[in-house]
Design a protein around this nucleic acid. Structure first.
Lengths: 166, 166
DNA sequence: CGGAAATCGTTTGGTTGCTAACAATCTCAA
DNA sequence: TTGAGATTGTTAGCAACCAAACGATTTCCG
């Protein structure tokens, strides 16, 4: 994701292509840097924390959500994690095969499936999440400490604004 | 990607799971909101701008990079766009079949392949990019205008910091 | 020169993710 | 009570993406 050209070079080239059109470069910089950062952070966390444990990004998110909220319904896992319920089905089966999580049918509603971690799953998260958060601190460390909450808030506003208008 | 729980609820639950461990919630908020925002923005841009033209996200990025820098070598497209050269091969073939881009063998170096847009490809980008940037403005509009450059800069620092230490 | 090493784009094989269709189950109004 | 409609998790089919292996070409150095 490392751009081979600087932002200034790109802006000049884009200006050539867009003579007479009104382009907002600040907005462009926000979105493009958002994607670059998200990709870089995800790759970094996958390599430094998840890969050594043989976990995919989605598998970790599922473990995380279940760890926090167990017992939890599968539809809630998908919503909280931000992926489709079909995707969840496959990941959940993998986690079940690895004895990290288990499915239980709901007694109140026969359509629902509840998910819990196994003791092994809880133990894994207890050692894995501190590692994960340590790398999150490394990532956020690129921004001055007194600006991090402001950054998180700005990102939260962007998400909320989109979800409001869909 | 809409969390079913508030951040405060999540923090309380996480605290229960992490008694005695030191977790930095500010860093956690930065990364989690980074992913939520990136996913929301990408989905929004795909639905509002790209899908009506039958373009995938990656296909649009390729068109964009080629549009700005043509003629450009494929390896540079992949680097600039942030995906593998294997992925690029497939996307490029699709764009070639749709008569939006063309491959040309380099005369100086027989291993290289140069890519250009067709006239139809340039015309498409001339009408597509203003639409795209308009939605970028909507996205960035959630953040006060005088804070957008600061936001972009913070995200740029995060990316640079990771790439420096890999 | 000349051959080993590096670099290029493509191919191959596999993973991950989604949408749409489906069976099972529950809800609710007639 | 009952049947139409809504909702749930799963399945099937498909698109996107990557790493590794490969053939073609160029570069480098003895």
């Amino acid at each position: 994701m490392a751009g081979a050209h600087t932002l200034a070079e790109t802006e000049r080239q884009v200006s050539d292509r867009l003579k007479g059109m009104s382009i907002d470069f600040s907005s462009m910089a926000v979105t493009s840097n958002l994607f670059r950062a998200a990709t870089a952070v995800r790759n970094h966390l996958e390599r430094s924390v998840l890969a050594p444990h043989g976990l995919s990004w989605t598998a970790f998110v599922v473990l995380w959500v279940v760890w926090i909220w167990e017992p939890i319904e599968t539809r809630q896992i998908a919503e909280e994690g931000g992926f489709s319920k079909a995707t969840l089905t496959g990941v959940l089966s993998t986690l079940e095969n690895r004895k990290l999580a288990i499915r239980k049918k709901s007694k109140e509603d026969g359509r629902l499936v509840l998910v819990e971690l196994t003791p092994a799953g809880r133990k894994l998260m207890q050692e894995l999440f501190p590692e994960f958060n340590q790398q999150e601190q490394f990532v956020a460390g690129a921004v001055p400490a007194d600006k991090r909450d402001e950054l998180a808030e700005a990102l939260r506003r962007i998400t909320a604004n989109i979800e409001k208008n869909d």
